[in-house]
Design a binder for these strands. Sequence first.
DNA 1: ACCACGAGTTGATCTATGTCAAGCGTGTGG
DNA 2: CCACACGCTTGACATAGATCAACTCGTGGT
Lengths: 246, 246
Amino acid sequence: MSRFTSSVDMSLSAIKTACSNCNLRELCLPFGLSDQEVARVDELINVRKRVKRGENLYRAGSTFESIYAIRTGFFKTYVLLEDGRDQVTGFQMAGELLGLDGISTERHSCNAVALEDSEVCFIPFVRLEEVSREIQTLQHHFHKVMSREIVRDHGVMLLLGTMRAEERLATFLLNLSQRFTARGFSPAEFNLRMTREEIGSYLGLKLETVSRSFSRFQEEGLISVQQKHIRILNISGLKNLLDHRK
Amino acid sequence: MSRFTSSVDMSLSAIKTACSNCNLRELCLPFGLSDQEVARVDELINVRKRVKRGENLYRAGSTFESIYAIRTGFFKTYVLLEDGRDQVTGFQMAGELLGLDGISTERHSCNAVALEDSEVCFIPFVRLEEVSREIQTLQHHFHKVMSREIVRDHGVMLLLGTMRAEERLATFLLNLSQRFTARGFSPAEFNLRMTREEIGSYLGLKLETVSRSFSRFQEEGLISVQQKHIRILNISGLKNLLDHRK
DNA sequence: ACCACGAGTTGATCTATGTCAAGCGTGTGG
DNA sequence: CCACACGCTTGACATAGATCAACTCGTGGT
């Protein structure tokens, strides 16, 4: 982790952006908007930024001004306890929004770090509220996105509160698989961008338990693991792990 | 409280002007609005409903139309797994909103049950979006409320992912105490509305562990417990449980 | 007012996961 | 392109909390 905490500023290359020709449009904020409406959204997104692997997009306590749409790359968000314990609250990939936590107090309440070289669009929040007062579709979609985040969090609470280690890991893999699929990647084969420790933090497990569970899955022929490379060999086998518990 | 739960008839106009003379205004949706603006919000709240202890306000899967503001009473929300395991995702009290989970898919994703006889205001969501396109203050406050829910959920994830049983319970008690205080009740003395099992479900513990932890706190003079009645005797002692872990 | 059953407490034991430790291999940065 | 640090795996052991069980209490419903 030490090499990640050193960075302070992000490489600052402001690029003119346009949702209009972004292939993530249908996964991202402009979902369901007409061309005209997308053009209005384009106007409010005037900054794009690269975030290098290990750099913070924002930190807990920093003032909130924008939400961010991930154009390329992969992030984690996490909260810290004073004593050093931390909890990864999510992993975010292209098309997903970051920073919603900051609206409530005008300060971010968690940290966002790039897990690979990434690019994000800045969406100044005041302007987003402006435009969403004008465009009903945008307003409604934004509400759906926030609500979806709440529902997702409840799912994680269910996982952390009731599931056993292997169920948690299976759920995690199936979720990743499904999100990669939605982005046009293979449902069965992908590279993890995060370490065992980060997976463990997200799932409320120690890294050794994550590692052992991976090994167990492999022994059982459910997946093949080679460091960060995962191949799902038996997806329904993984799903069965979740169903049939007494 | 009694004047709301009595069976005395109320005039329609009294119902229609709910927010304007509701003493929860500053905790609830109309927070920060001018009198004029509150009047606009009043207009969209045209139904109030009693929910008896044990009744569902809504269920997972039911279609989403309204969010609900709790006028009096106490609720829990929970999600279910097919195999019967469940996870309480939150306890809600007067002035708090219920139903935000439903926005994302137009169907509720969790269940809401009254833990005591309660009364809620229906806020038809389509109308809320309408009015919040007109009233910026309302729009912004609503966004803050949703964001606050996300931040709260992250806090629960931290609790479930990293804390030990007694830390979880202490966090829970301190949170309740703080919310009762915000509503003008004693910070140190209150009645739990939920069972040990429900507390356990929320905190990712079994009821026996909750019971044992209560007993331990009592032995240590931190609280006194008598069934559902809690008195916090040493609030900083409880807080210390959270800080000083290596 | 009473009874019965749900809620809570407490003890004894079990177990899943944490902890500690040692060694390996791979991919990243110099 | 190479080296080594970091990430990962695996084993042995420890423990917090789960599970099972027996008993008490108190409260809500009739």
